[in-house]
Amino acid sequence: MPELQKLYDAVLNGDQKTAVAITQEALAAGVDPMELITNYMVPAMDKVGSLFECEEYFVPELLLSARAMKGSLELLRPLLAAAGAQPAGRVVIGTVKGDLHDIGKNLVASMLEGGGFEVMDLGADVPPEKFIEAVRARNANIVCLSALLTVTMPAMRTTIDALKTAGVREQVKVMVGGAPVTPQFADEIGADGYSDNASAAVGLARKLVKQG
């Protein structure tokens, strides 16, 4: 039986190689995948988030931890699906049409995954119809929209309007973020929430899911 605390440490320290190795050993030893996630990976990513918020960690460390966490999660995901485990929420995320910037979006996606959410990442330059299609296909309850440019911010409004027209707006909460986006802009375009960083986005998503 591997020392499972090392999985926590590996995710916290952004050591993908060790995170994957411990996960493999744990699975071989018959450890429940949910135990790895709930007792080690989610707490490690929560700690990463708090270190980011108190400026001990920065974007590079966040990226490293997210990569380590994803390495383990790739091994666990098929097992979770087979066991019918319920995620904290089902998220569809993407950078809006016209915008290719994805680092912030990727971080939010990783942090949400680390927080126990099932995340479908549509990538960058995503047209509204792709969001609609994904919401329907995944029965999502959260949509996350990202934009870095002032010229592409209006595509957030277009996307939310398209969700309404398609009749799926009521089934999802919409979160927005990105450098030029503000809470006021989020209100104006009818989003349900705004976050200015990836760590806080997890807390926001949990809150929105609770609201139902």
């Binding site: 049409k97 016209g98 915008d99 290719l100 440019l149 010229v151």
Partner: peptide, 11 residues
């Protein structure tokens, strides 16, 4: 470089 439709710059 790529300039998506809807953008005004290359990335």
């Amino acid at each position: 470089g790529r300039m998506p439709l809807g953008s005004a710059f290359f990335d």
